[in-house]
């Protein structure tokens, strides 16, 4: 189990933002966290990635509680893509991606190889010498993705272990992207899962989640109201109740996955 959380809760003053949530993610799985605004997705996400300590319950990453990980060691195993970035200093795109290699001691030569590879993968060749603060929102998001991928990229070129001990956390990575780049990003994440990486992702687009995720966690008012495969969770009754809109669920003609229409 790459991520195992039991009885998670987060309390602010007298209010529980999240309570009684259990989550399991196996190596090579993509877990999508869904739910309406204010359902506690981000709070749960921050506990799962170790940014906020849980008020209740425990999160185990690769079999070890967050409190037992040292920050440096943890950085070699899990990377987090935040929703917003506050970088305002004029780094070039290449320099930002290279910052992802900061926790590693692989040497500048291999680091630059990885950076070049990821710039290619994230479709950034055209932008690589441009200054980050003057990119568009979507371009910035792709640069940040390349940076977090650089953080957990295999240090050796032929790494047999690959991604079985690595986790990627993505907080609404597609929010500023056009349709083509949404798919590029999620395909990239999906590719990673086939190499053993675990991906935990917050999404707003139900159909994107249905198309790419292996497992869905549905949140409502701080509670887990659905957890399982896409087919298990994408039930008309549940989606209608959680999002409070009438929907139809059909099958995607090519992929065969559920498709939500409203």
């Amino acid at each position: 189990m790459s991520l195992h959380a039991t009885g998670l809760g987060y309390q602010v003053a007298d209010t529980w933002l999240v309570r009684d949530v259990d989550v399991d993610v196996s190596p090579g799985q993509m877990l999508a966290i869904l739910g309406p605004n204010g359902a506690g997705k981000s709070t749960l996400f921050k506990m799962l990635c170790g940014e906020w300590p849980a008020s209740e319950g425990d999160v185990q990453l690769l079999g070890k509680s967050y409190s037992k990980w040292s920050a440096q060691e943890l950085a070699l195993h899990r990377a987090v893509l935040p929703q917003h970035s506050s970088l305002t200093f004029p780094f070039t795109v290449e320099e930002v991606v290279l910052l992802g290699r900061a926790p590693h001691k692989t040497g500048i030569k291999r680091d630059l190889e990885i950076v070049a590879e990821l710039i290619e993968l994230c479709d950034l060749q055209r932008l690589k010498t441009r200054l980050y603060p003057w990119l568009s929102g979507g371009e910035k998001q792709r640069v940040q993705l390349a940076r977090v991928l650089a953080q957990i990229w295999p240090s050796q070129q032929q790494d047999t272990k690959q991604g079985h001990d690595k986790l990627l956390f993505l907080d609404e990575p597609t929010s500023a992207l056009d349709i083509a780049h949404q798919h590029i990003m999620l395909k990239l994440a999906k590719d990673l899962t086939s190499r053993g990486y675990s991906v935990i992702i917050i999404l707003h687009d139900l159909n994107l989640a249905a198309a790419y995720a292996d497992k869905i966690l549905m949140m409502q008012e701080g509670k887990r109201v659905g957890f399982g495969s896409v087919e298990d969770v994408f039930q008309q009754e549940l989606i209608q109740r959680v999002f409070d809109v009438p929907v139809e669920i059909v099958q995607h003609p090519e992929r065969g996955t559920p498709w939500v229409i409203w």
């Binding site: 990635c49 940014e51 920050a71 440096q72 060691e73 943890l74 950085a75 070699l76 899990r78 990377a79 987090v80 935040p82 970035s85 506050s86 970088l87 200093f89 780094f91 930002v96 910052l99 992802g100 900061a102 926790p103 940076r147 953080q151």
Partner: peptide, 17 residues
Amino acid sequence: LNALLLGESEARHLGFS
């Protein structure tokens, strides 16, 4: 310091105290 420019939580995620 370079990592800090990304933001405080980003620097933490990169393993810096």
